[in-house]
Amino acid sequence: MASAEEHTVLPRPTFDKPVKVLIVVSPYYSEIAEGLLTGAKAELEAAGATYEVVEMPGALEIPTAIGISDRRSNFDGYVALGCVIRGETTHYETVCNDSSRALSMLGLSGLCIGNGILTVENKKQAEVRADPEGQNKGGGAAAAALHLIALARKWASASKGIGFKPRGEDTLMAGDTDGNTTA
């Protein structure tokens, strides 16, 4: 059974420009996916974000769909939703590890992704986590994407000081000791 332990929830970020998010969901376990999707939509709507939803067959296809979307569309962020329930084979570990790793790699390359792919031992655990009135992991994944979008926008125009900059009045050039240029 899932823990009812309390945890900190960050305040919802606010935006001065519209936010557009793609939700990629696997309906493999349709009841679980519906709960995740309901929670994610509610969180995005509460933040004033618009969204589109696409379905993929399973959790392994979700990162690929996000990668394709990033190359061919204009979303600010992504929410990955699905569920992987342990079975009798090692397929569970493969799907959990590979989907998580791929989402992490996409995130490290600059995409704003909230990971709501549940990895659980049984359906009951998934139901508790997916329930929008319970743990609301779909809403949590949407919130994570929104926080990453806010961070990316905050630093969007920040310069790391790399490359050439226009010459300012206080810039000395090699061989120029008084700040005047020579022709």
Score class of each variant (00 low, 15 high):
169 E>A: 15
31 E>T: 12
116 G>P: 02
44 L>K: 01
74 N>D: 15
38 T>K: 11
170 D>L: 11
99 S>M: 04
156 A>E: 15
14 T>Q: 15
61 E>R: 02
52 E>S: 12
73 S>Y: 08
54 V>G: 01
44 L>V: 01
2 A>Q: 11
5 E>C: 05
137 K>H: 09
144 A>M: 10
150 A>I: 01
121 E>A: 12
131 D>S: 13
148 L>M: 15
70 D>A: 15
41 K>A: 04
8 T>A: 11
180 N>L: 11
149 I>S: 00
96 C>A: 12
23 I>Y: 09
148 L>Q: 15
116 G>T: 06
50 T>E: 13
80 A>S: 15
110 G>Y: 05
106 L>M: 09
123 K>A: 09
81 L>P: 01
64 T>E: 14
71 R>T: 12
53 V>Y: 07
178 D>I: 06
69 S>F: 06
136 N>Q: 03
98 D>V: 06
142 A>R: 06
153 R>C: 05
28 Y>D: 00
25 V>C: 12
145 A>T: 06
119 T>M: 06
164 F>T: 07
85 I>D: 03
175 G>R: 01
49 A>H: 01
29 Y>E: 07
100 S>I: 03
123 K>W: 10
76 D>W: 03
94 T>A: 13
156 A>T: 08
38 T>P: 03
113 I>R: 03
124 K>G: 13
160 K>S: 14
165 K>L: 15
135 Q>R: 14
83 C>K: 00
22 L>G: 08
56 M>G: 01
177 T>W: 14
87 G>V: 08
35 G>L: 09
27 P>H: 04
90 T>G: 11
66 I>E: 07
57 P>G: 08
